[in-house]
Measured scan of single mutants.
Amino acid sequence: GSSGLPPGWQSYLSPQGRRYYVNTTTNETTWERPSSS
């Protein structure tokens, strides 16, 4: 899909309704949208 996220990243919603991002390669999580640069 065209999520616009860098490879390996997925976006999720927290129980509070906030969006966060997870790097499935490194298990890093961040509130900031990852850049593909």
Rank of each mutant, 00 (worst) to 15 (best):
S37E: 13
S35I: 13
G17T: 01
E32W: 10
G4M: 10
T30V: 10
V22P: 00
S3F: 15
S2N: 13
T30P: 00
S35A: 12
Q16R: 10
Y12M: 09
W9P: 01
L5W: 04
Q10K: 15
W9F: 03
G1M: 11
G17R: 03
P6R: 04
S3K: 10
V22D: 00
P6N: 03
S37D: 14
T26G: 02
R33Y: 12
R33M: 09
N23R: 03
E32N: 08
P15L: 07
R33N: 09
W31V: 05
T25S: 12
Q10F: 14
L5S: 03
S11R: 04
T30L: 08
Y12K: 07
R18W: 07
P15E: 08
G4V: 10
E32L: 11
G4K: 10
S37A: 13
V22S: 03
R33A: 09
P15Q: 07
N23T: 00
T30K: 06
R18E: 12
Y20P: 00
G1W: 06
R19S: 04
T24D: 07
T26A: 03
L13S: 04
T30E: 02
P6S: 04
L5V: 04
P34M: 02
S37M: 12
S14V: 03
V22E: 01
S11W: 09
S14P: 01
P6W: 05
T25D: 11
Y21N: 00
T24P: 08
R33L: 10
Q10A: 12
S11T: 12
E32S: 08
E28I: 07
Q10Y: 13
T24S: 10
S11D: 05
P34E: 01
G8V: 03
E28P: 00
G1C: 15
P7L: 09
Y20H: 01
T24E: 08
R33W: 09
T25A: 14
G17V: 00
L13A: 03
T25Y: 15
R19T: 11
S35N: 12
P34W: 02
W9V: 01
G17D: 01
E28D: 05
G1V: 12
V22L: 09
L5I: 05
L5F: 03
Y21P: 00
Q16T: 15
N27A: 09
T30A: 06
T25I: 15
S11P: 03
R33Q: 07
P7F: 10
E28G: 02
T30Y: 07
E28A: 06
T25G: 07
T25H: 14
T26L: 05
W31F: 11
P34Y: 02
W31L: 06
N23L: 03
R19F: 10
N27I: 02
Y20T: 02
S36E: 13
S3E: 15
W31R: 04
G1R: 08
P15N: 06
Y21V: 00
S37N: 13
T29F: 15
Y20V: 07
G17H: 02
Q16V: 06
R19D: 04
T24A: 10
W31E: 05
N23S: 04
E28Q: 07
T24M: 11
T26M: 03
E32M: 09
P7R: 08
L13Y: 07
P15G: 05
R18F: 09
R33C: 11
G4F: 10
T30H: 05
P6M: 05
P34G: 01
Q10D: 08
R33P: 10
S14Y: 01
T25R: 12
P7V: 09
Y21F: 07
R33T: 06
L5P: 04
S36W: 15
G1L: 13
G8Y: 07
E32P: 01
L5C: 05
S36V: 13
Q10M: 14
E32A: 07
S2R: 09
R18G: 07
G1Q: 12
S14K: 01
S3H: 14
T25N: 11
T29K: 13
L13K: 05
S37I: 13
Y12R: 09
R33E: 07
Y20A: 02
E28C: 12
T24F: 09
E32Q: 11
S35P: 13
P34K: 01
P15R: 08
P15H: 06
T24H: 10
Q10V: 15
S2A: 13
P6T: 04
N27H: 13
Y12S: 04
S3G: 14
P34N: 02
G17N: 05
N23F: 06
S11Y: 06
P7Q: 08
G4N: 10
S2D: 14
S14D: 15
P15S: 09
Q16F: 09
Q16D: 15
N27K: 11
Y20W: 06
G4P: 14
S11H: 04
L13F: 08
Q10W: 08
S11N: 02
G17M: 03
L13E: 06
N23H: 06
Y12E: 04
W31Y: 10
T29R: 14
P6Q: 04
E32D: 11
S37L: 13
Y12L: 08
S35K: 11
S36Y: 14
G1A: 13
N23E: 02
P34L: 02
S35F: 11
Y12N: 04
P6E: 04
T29D: 02
P7S: 08
S11Q: 10
N23Y: 06
R18L: 10
G8E: 07
T25V: 15
R18K: 11
V22K: 07
G8K: 04
G4T: 11
E28L: 06
V22N: 01
V22G: 01
S3I: 14
T29N: 05
W9H: 00
G1K: 06
N23G: 00
T30R: 10
S35D: 12
S14M: 03
G4D: 14
R33I: 09
N27L: 12
Q10N: 09
Y21G: 00
R18M: 09
R19G: 01
W9I: 02
Y12F: 15
Y20L: 05
S36M: 14
L5G: 02
W9M: 01
G8M: 05
G1E: 14
T25Q: 13
Y20S: 01
Y20K: 02
Q10T: 14
R18A: 08
R18Q: 11
P34V: 02
S14T: 15
T29Q: 09
G1P: 11
W31N: 05
Y21A: 00
P7G: 06
T24L: 14
R18S: 07
E32T: 11
G1H: 13
P34C: 01
S11M: 15
G8W: 06
G4E: 12
E32I: 14
V22Q: 05
Y20M: 05
E28S: 04
E28W: 05
W31Q: 04
L13G: 01
N23D: 04
N27W: 12
S35W: 10
N23P: 00
S14L: 03
Y21K: 00
V22W: 08
Y21R: 00
S2H: 12
Q10I: 15
N23M: 02
P6V: 04
G4W: 12
L13Q: 05
N23K: 04
N23I: 01
G17P: 00
S37T: 12
L13R: 06
R33V: 09
R19K: 08
N23W: 04
T25M: 14
Q16K: 10
S37G: 13
S2G: 13
T25W: 14
T26V: 02
R19N: 05
S37V: 14
P15I: 06
S3R: 12
S3Y: 15
Q10E: 14
T29S: 08
R19L: 14
N27S: 09
G17K: 03
L13W: 09
Y20Q: 01
V22H: 08
P34Q: 01
G4I: 10
T26N: 05
S14F: 01
T30G: 02
